[in-house]
Design a protein around this nucleic acid. Structure first.
Length: 750
DNA sequence: GAGTTTGAAACT
DNA sequence: CAGTTTCAAACTC
């Protein structure tokens, strides 16, 4: 069987699956290139906006009498995952392995692994392993059979084939048989051969869960197709591959040390304006767990801590956005209009579900607080408390599942959310029993009728003691701001900040000064609305589902202080146009350009060659649906070409200037570094200005004093010089010591 | 920076 | 749905 079942395909969104892959080398041979399955239309891999994710499967590869549980995510409190990245493109993780987790064939009352958890139907709660992450189970053949009999998806190796067996929604087994030869990203290769063959999987984060899905040829075809390539080979040429390599050594495996290597390959289209390329991908921590910060140029944010306790996740409908993976930041659209969704990694991996409503620009996130026990999320502890104390009155959400919408952040707001471990007082990643999710989310009243009073930006929290579902809804820019600003504190033990407080934090960092990140990475230009109260689509902030922040608007109601007004305005806009908040730039019909204005422009005097024109502003050409007059924004337009050349030239100049400035700054920095003494403790370098005129004079005085004393005591010249030099050395030490102390004091005070 | 132009949004 | 008004951004000087 060489064709992926449609059920499986349906859960593999192209945008997610095309761009990521994990290569598992677990004493597994490297596979030869896998031919893309023929006769499969690449479009089949596309996923509807709202996708049912029927299964989470664990991949259990049979290995001869060896049993290994391999967690892709950060292990738990008992496991540590050293994480390194080479050349900024590869991340090496070395998780320890529990040898006895995966293969338990018998059903457990409180399943702790996927294998033991039974059928992983989306609609039914399931239990993840200790760290709530995908577990690759390497089991013996006999164990695999047992596990399969319990409905656990298995990844079996049969010669040259990798068979992923699971149960579809309809109860039908889904068997994914991998081609014998598969060596390319986006293909799945079997496991277990002595010959090294790359087995590649795609990490699919679904609603907070990360699933490792084998990449099959169909996906490869899709990728190639999307990237405009006619073959997988061409596709690979057009892609930049970001690889996350996870190396695992079994520690307790009965089979002895094993090395498992995962390679998460992020493919980026080289097409500058394509939706796949506008942003460096971010792999949130669900995939790999606690990670070491990754260095540029390509940042792969590895998620933070994970719980060790079992958690259940009531999964009903998990949205896989066709636009992006939930665990990464993906550009949608093109320059100027690209939109991004930033999804935060959560500690409780399976507890965030994303749901996208067809036709909606919002991505709904369902956040379910996981518990430490095997109970469902409905029994979870509250994730965010102190709702009553918040002036903005965050709603206490009942236990019913609810959907959260996530406004997509405009292109300018693209940021790589890098969850970084904070100190004890600043913790973004929730603890084991609590979740703190700050999610760019906006509830859509028409979809969430019981939350019609929730305007975008409302922070939803669960009440202490009664909450089981924690929601935090914040405008997208807050997410990015909060994420990038280290001052954000989401301590699990502290009371959750009020909504007003959060907003204040977003606008004003805790230290009272505008943070560099905020000032330099502000999502977009501030608005200048004066009459619309920023509650009409005239306001770009409002139109983008964001709060006004650092804007120049007057009488602004686009904030948490005016929730009700804002909600009404949103509702009014949606009443007028249900697609008011949808991106205006989207994909056109088949055969047309990839991007086009959803409504078309109506320009009359600008020739569609000025930024008045929304098409031109979005750097796309006018299409047949435009009603513009005298349009010059078409492919062969000489005026357009001239403008483009001018724009390119201007861009080059800007880049050159930027490069020159950077170089100058670097040189200055080097100069300062070379001219400043190093602290004895190695804690940095002192500013050269520490040697002030007064310090120099005092030093000279000391030296002169020593010289005079030596002279008075009729010391030989050699002795006098030595005394003077010793005094000079003491002076230097005092200067250094004082500087270090001052620096330390400064750091404490600051 | 003030004034003008422009086209989308809002309104009728 | 079309015409008009309002609005804020883009643009010009």
């Amino acid at each position: 069987m060489d064709v992926v079942p449609s059920e499986l395909n349906s859960i593999l969104p192209d945008e997610i699956m095309d761009t990521e892959a994990i290569v598992m080398e677990d004493s597994l041979p490297v596979a030869s290139p896998a031919p893309a399955p023929s006769g499969v239309d690449a479009t089949e891999t596309s996923v509807s906006m709202e996708t049912e994710v029927p299964e989470i499967f664990s991949l259990c590869s049979t290995a001869t009498s060896t049993q290994m549980t391999l967690a892709l995510t950060t292990p738990t409190t008992t496991d540590s995952v050293p994480c390194t990245m080479n050349s900024g493109t590869q991340l090496l993780l070395t998780p320890s392995v529990s040898s006895s987790q995966c293969h338990t064939p018998a059903p457990a009352p409180k399943p702790t692994t996927l294998v033991a958890g039974g059928l992983q139907k989306l609609s039914a709660p399931f239990t993840l392993s200790a760290n709530h992450q995908l577990i690759l189970n390497k089991v013996g053949s006999s164990s695999g059979v047992d596990a399969k009999s319990h409905g656990t998806p298995l990844l079996k190796h049969e010669g040259q084939k990798l068979v992923v067996t699971t149960i579809s929604k309809g109860g039908q087994p889904i068997v994914l048989t991998l081609p014998h030869t598969a060596a390319k990203p986006g293909t799945v290769v079997r496991t277990g051969d002595a010959t090294v063959q790359p087995q590649q999987f795609k990490v699919v984060a679904i609603g907070g869960r990360t699933e490792l899905k084998p990449v099959v040829g169909v996906q490869t075809v899709s990728t190639a197709s999307q990237l405009g390539s006619s073959s997988p080979q061409t596709a690979s040429q057009n892609q930049q591959l970001k690889t996350v390599q996870i190396t695992k050594k079994t520690v307790a495996s009965t089979a002895g040390p094993m090395v498992t290597k995962f390679i998460i390959t992020k493919a980026l289209s080289s097409k500058g304006l394509s939706s796949q390329t506008s942003v460096s991908p971010v792999l949130t921590g669900r995939v790999l767990g606690q990670g070491t910060p990754v260095t540029p140029p390509r940042t792969i944010a590895i998620a933070d801590t994970l719980n060790s306790a079992s958690q259940s996740v009531p999964t009903s409908k998990v949205a896989i956005s066709p636009l992006m993976s939930p665990s990464k930041t993906v550009a949608v659209g093109g320059v100027g209009t690209s939109q991004f969704k930033t999804i935060f990694p959560l500690a409780a991996t399976p507890s965030v579900q994303q749901i996208q409503v067809p036709g909606s620009r919002f991505h709904y996130v369902r956040l379910v607080t996981a518990t430490t026990a095997s109970g469902t999320a409905h029994n979870s502890s509250p994730s965010i408390n102190s709702a009553s104390s918040q002036p903005a009155k965050p709603l206490v959400v009942n236990t019913a599942p609810m959907r959260m919408s996530v406004p997509i952040v405009p292109a300018q707001t693209v940021k790589q959310v890098v969850p970084k471990p904070l100190n004890s007082t600043a913790q973004v990643v929730p603890t084991q029993t609590q979740q703190r999710l700050i999610m760019p989310a906006t509830p859509l009243p028409q979809i969430q009728p019981n939350l019609t009073n929730l305007p975008p930006g409302t922070v939803l929290t669960s009440a202490p003691g009664v909450g089981n579902v924690g929601y935090a809804v914040l405008p997208a820019q807050y997410v990015t701001q909060l994420q990038q600003s280290s001052f954000v504190t989401l301590a699990s033990s502290a009371s959750y900040s009020t909504t007003t407080g959060i907003q204040t934090q977003a606008r004003m960092p805790l230290n009272g000064t505008l943070s560099v990140s905020e000032s330099t990475t502000r999502p977009r230009k501030p608005c200048n609305c004066t009459k619309s109260q920023c509650l009409k689509l005239y306001c770009d902030c409002f139109a983008n589902g964001e709060f006004c922040s650092n804007c120049n608007c007057t009488n602004c109601f686009n904030n948490l202080e005016h929730e009700s007004e804002r909600l009404k305005a949103i509702k009014a806009c949606l009443d007028r146009n249900p697609e008011a908040f949808k991106p205006k730039i989207g994909k056109g019909k088949e055969g047309e350009s990839d991007r086009r204005h959803s409504k078309g422009c109506n320009c009359k005097r600008s020739g569609c060659l000025k930024n008045y024109c929304e098409c031109y502003e979005a750097k796309i050409m006018c299409s047949s649906i435009c009603k513009c007059v005298g349009c010059k924004n078409f492919e062969e337009s000489p005026e357009r070409k001239t403008l483009m050349h001018l724009a390119d030239a201007a861009e080059v100049r800007v880049q050159q200037q930027t490069a020159a400035k950077t170089k100058l700054s670097s040189q200055i920095s080097d100069l300062l570094t070379r001219t400043t003494p190093a602290l004895p403790c190695g804690g940095g370098r002192l500013p050269y200005t520490f040697v002030t005129k007064e310090v120099a004079e005092a030093t000279c005085d000391c030296l002169m004093e020593q010289a005079e004393q030596a002279e008075l005591s009729s010391q030989p010249q050699a002795v006098a010089e030595r005394v003077i030099l010793e005094e000079f050395g003491r002076c230097l030490m005092r200067i250094i010591s004082s500087a270090g102390k001052a620096k330390m004091d400064c750091s404490i005070n600051c």
